[in-house]
C-alpha cells in the first residue's frame, strides 16, 4: 500500500455487485483492491488473484514437530526410566505411536492457528476504511488509487451497483 494516497470505498448489498465491480476494476487496471465481506464468498475469491499462503507449510511443520516431540518424549523418558511392564520392551513403539499421533495433531493445529492469527493481523486494513455494516449485511470494495483517478473508480463502483461510495485519505 502506498504511504500516501486515496482509498475509495464502495458499499454493496449483494455479492453480484461486488463481483462486477471487481471485474471492472481489474479490467481498468486497479489491482490494489480489498474486499470486505460478511460471509466467506467463494464467488469473490475466484475473481481475485490467488495469494501464496505459508499456513500450509506452518501446519506441516507443526505436525512434523509434534510427531518428533512425541517420539522423543516417549522414547527418551522410557530410556531414562527403564521400568519393565508386562514383559514389553522398554521402547514399545506401537503405544508410543499413539502419543506421537496425538501430538502431531496438537502441534499441527497450534501451528495452523498461529499462522491464522498472524495472517488475520497482517491482512487487517486501517479501521477508518472499515464500516461496521461490513460484518452484517454489506459488502465493501476498497480501492487505493491516485488522486486523479478517484472519480473513475467512484464511477466504476457506482455502475457496478454500489449503494454508496466514499473516499478516505490516508
Amino acid at each position: 500500500m502506498n504511504d500516501k494516497g486515496i482509498a475509495v470505498i464502495g458499499t454493496f448489498d449483494a455479492v453480484e455487485g461486488v463481483r462486477s465491480a471487481v471485474t471492472a476494476l481489474h479490467q481498468s487496471g486497479f489491482k490494489d483492491t480489498t474486499i470486505y465481506s460478511p460471509l466467506n464468498s467463494h464467488e469473490i475469491e475466484t475473481e481475485l488473484e490467488p495469494v501464496e499462503s505459508p499456513i500450509g507449510f506452518l501446519a506441516f511443520g507443526g505436525a512434523a514437530a509434534g510427531a518428533g516431540i512425541g517420539l522423543l518424549l516417549t522414547i527418551g523418558t522410557s530410556i531414562q526410566w527403564p521400568l519393565m511392564t508386562g514383559g514389553q520392551p522398554i521402547i514399545s513403539l506401537p503405544p508410543f505411536f499413539v502419543i506421537s499421533f496425538e501430538l502431531t495433531i496438537l502441534f499441527g493445529v497450534l501451528a495452523t492457528l498461529l499462522g491464522m492469527f498472524w495472517q488475520i493481523h497482517r491482512s487487517k486494513s486501517d479501521p477508518k476504511f472499515y464500516d461496521s455494516r461490513f460484518s452484517v449485511d454489506r459488502f465493501g470494495v476498497h480501492v487505493v488509487c491516485d488522486e486523479d483517478r478517484v472519480v473513475v473508480v467512484k464511477n466504476l463502483l457506482s455502475t457496478a451497483g454500489a449503494e454508496e461510495v466514499r473516499d478516505e485519505r490516508f
Partner: peptide, 29 residues
C-alpha cells in the same frame, strides 16, 4: 481484528480446511 477482508477470508478458509483436516483423524483416534 477481524474485518472480513478478502485476504482474511482466504487465510481463514485455508485454516478452517486444515483444521477440519486435522480434526477428522483426531476424532477417529
Amino acid at each position: 481484528g477481524w474485518q472480513g477482508t478478502n485476504k482474511q477470508w482466504r487465510s481463514y478458509s485455508k485454516v478452517y480446511l486444515l483444521l477440519a483436516g486435522f480434526a477428522t483423524p483426531l476424532v477417529v483416534s
